[in-house]
Structures are given as structure tokens and as C-alpha cells.
Amino acid sequence: MPARGYIEINADKCKGCGLCISFCPQKLIRFSEKFNTKGYHPAEFHDPQKRCIACGFCYQMCPDSAITVYRFKGVTQNV
């Protein structure tokens, strides 16, 4: 099944709380090895197998509006 979308995480806005990681149903988000400008390990989107369903759960739970969710047009899905 092709990816229905993908997300972008603004690494410098991210405070590394991990809520997106724990609520991603596909387990596609992880803590980065790197530090951001605040000194946190920001969340990082990792989807080599294109499994993102663009459900937006990560966006909904992000307390810092650091996540933007993109959807591919023509790919239907149900959340």
C-alpha cells in the first residue's frame, strides 16, 4: 500500500515531549540523535516503507504546533 501522505516536523520548535511518538499508530516517529537549538532531541519522521496514513494524530497531540501533515491527493483513507 503506498503512503497516503507524510509529515514535516519543525525540529527547532519541537521540545521532544514524545507525545507524537507515542500516539503514531504506524510508529513512524522517533527521537532524533541530533540536538535542536533548544538542546532537545527533537522528534523525527522516519518512514522508509511509506506507511504514513496521514491520520494527523501526531499533529493533534503536538503541544507546539511543530508538525505539518501533508496528504497525497487521490489517495483515499479513513481516519
Partner: peptide, 10 residues
Amino acid sequence: MIKEMFLKKP
């Protein structure tokens, strides 16, 4: 495939 922004900072 055409992408569209689905959810972003209001």
C-alpha cells in the same frame, strides 16, 4: 502525485 497540506498551524 499531488500533495496538499492537510493539517498545519492555524
